[in-house]
Design a protein around this nucleic acid. Structure first.
Lengths: 336, 336
DNA sequence: CTGAAAGCGCTTACAG
DNA sequence: CTGAAAGCGCTTACAG
């Protein structure tokens, strides 16, 4: 049997209005009646029904995390779920819930899903994968005047709010590290040209080199498919060139595996012959030796920050947030 | 501006009761008025306010997924999030939402979190990590009579509902496969004795061998820490013994990497000298060659099934579900 | 400081 | 088939 606010009111000999005030810790209730009410609430083990409270307050205390949650994606992209964990953490601290909104439905288009959920008023705001946002979706979001923040800058000019990793800055960090070690011929083991994260990191790489008056050698920048053999061969070519690099940055952990395999097969040693820095510990670092120096990015915190910004926006809907949150950390290990 | 049910009623010239009936597709409303109402709803782009509807219906259309969502867990245990994706998929198909309930709070104990959320009536049911369930938590759940299902059988006798992977059956599948290939001396590269998944798989291994009248050789069962060098050495010992196994089952993908490294360094070939089957493609299979034969387990479906059972339990709270859902699939590749 | 009353936006017997 | 009215369990001006 569940008690309601009127059960409490009755037993405490006060009105439901007064009980409501102590529940919500409003001022203007005498400490005597407050205590009395609290005592009854305790005895009855009473907790307010949040649905009723939310309806009356016209809030939901609920935030949506909108992305594509299809089968297997946690294996492909665990980062996304670490962001979600960060968002959940910060939301629950603020008395909010995080519910998942799957934009990957064969029956409905993304636009339709978003419109329906916004009109149904089932959440106070939304965290949205920026990569999924189109100008058309931007318009829908603005029409509804629904508090939102994108994870990842949309790939067009927008007045939506977003928060993103500063990949360029992270690459800069890797470059500075290698330059400090005395490296002067830096190579970049990159992904494919459609991979925005890689492209940002590459840009950071290039800018950092220019800033240090080092010429960017085009042949030292490689574009690789995510296949271990392709990467290996690509690295071999780099290492066999008469003008061999003395420092290599790998855009992810798979690149690091392939590249280090090549370095070892050339009987070169790290960091003496060649220093190496990789992005992302995950998922292959446990497998490789020597342990690679790595730039780690705290995506959990990205989720936390996204929520903080979204909350500001809920309070003041006019706010626009567009910000890079860097949070890279260099973990120096055995390859540099 | 958001329209309400009375706006619709007014413009359609009917009562809100009637509008409610067409929203909920109740019978006993003439097709003429139904059409009229639908037309207005469409014109106004009206969607019912779910909070209000839920309050009146005394439901929330919300299911909690309760587990520990701390920083970094998606990297350690992406399976958990694939289960979540499966649950979300099935829930949204049924008009429910999935919200995360983090049991990993330093300010509150698990018991307290569960009690508070259940009394607050913010969900109609709960999916709960069975590994976290204690007899004390069992009592709380039963007290509240709250529809629940555990993912993973709790490690004590319980009348809570649970659904689990049939690890034992999966191991059986691996054994049968190797026996069919003619192997007779099977080894098992296992994890640590506290790892329940491994223990279940080991049991399946042993039972399958006994069923086939093959003696289980104790020295062929190894217990290994999750460290690549430890695994390698353990496998080497197995391979160097005078009585070398002709088939090996690896309890996970890390075991497969270490074991295959040992096999290769012994200049043995797969599957001719030795056949190998591993559990889990993830995360290391992309790195290894030859491509390992693997028993894959569909955890996304586990989430889907958990939801189906939970829904039955919501309809009929007396239902108790305790079931193994196997869903293993053998993917034959180059090592067997 | 306290309470009566209206309201949040729906649904549900019930009467017609 | 349709609608008036009470109800879901809270909150919020407002009057006292």
């Amino acid at each position: 049997m569940q008690y309601t606010i009127s059960d409490v009111a009755k037993r405490a000999g006060v009105s439901t209005a007064t009980v409501s005030k102590v529940i919500n810790d409003k001022m203007y209730v005498s400490s005597r009646t407050k205590e009395k009410v609290l005592k009854i609430m305790n005895e009855l083990n009473y907790t307010p029904n949040v649905s009723a409270s939310n309806l009356a307050k016209k809030v939901t205390k609920n935030i949506l995390y909108a992305d594509r949650f299809y089968k297997g994606i946690p294996f492909k992209n665990p980062h996304m779920f670490d962001i979600i964990c960060g968002a959940e953490d910060e939301l629950s601290r603020r008395g909010y819930h995080l519910t998942l909104l799957n934009l990957d439905k064969d029956t409905k288009k993304i636009e339709q899903i978003l419109e329906d959920t916004m009109t149904s008023k089932s959440a106070d705001g939304m965290i949205l994968n920026g990569a999924l946002v189109t100008p058309r979706i931007e318009r829908i979001m603005l029409n509804f005047d629904f508090p939102q923040i994108c994870i990842g800058k949309p790939n067009f000019d927008t007045i939506l709010s977003w928060i993103d990793i500063n990949n360029s800055l992270s690459a800069n960090m890797a470059v500075e590290h290698l330059l400090n070690l005395g490296c002067r011929k830096l190579a970049f083991m990159g992904g494919q040209s459609g991979d925005e994260i890689f492209i940002d990191r590459l840009r950071g790489f290039q800018i950092a080199l220019q800033k240090n008056d080092i010429i960017v050698q085009e042949e030292f920048i490689t574009y690789n498919e995510p296949d271990i053999d392709v990467i290996y061969n690509s690295a071999m070519q780099l290492l066999q060139s008469p003008n061999r690099p003395d420092g290599i940055i790998c855009t992810n952990s798979l690149m690091a595996v392939g590249t280090m395999r090549a370095i070892k097969s050339m009987k070169l040693t790290m960091p003496d012959d060649i220093a190496l820095v990789a992005f992302d510990d995950y998922p292959y670092t446990p497998l490789i030796s020597p342990k690679p120096t790595v730039i780690e990015i705290d995506v959990f915190s990205l989720g936390v920050h996204a929520v903080s910004h979204l909350m500001r926006k809920i309070k003041d809907p006019a706010t626009i947030i567009q910000t890079y949150t860097a949070l890279p950390r260099l973990i120096k290990r055995e390859t540099s």
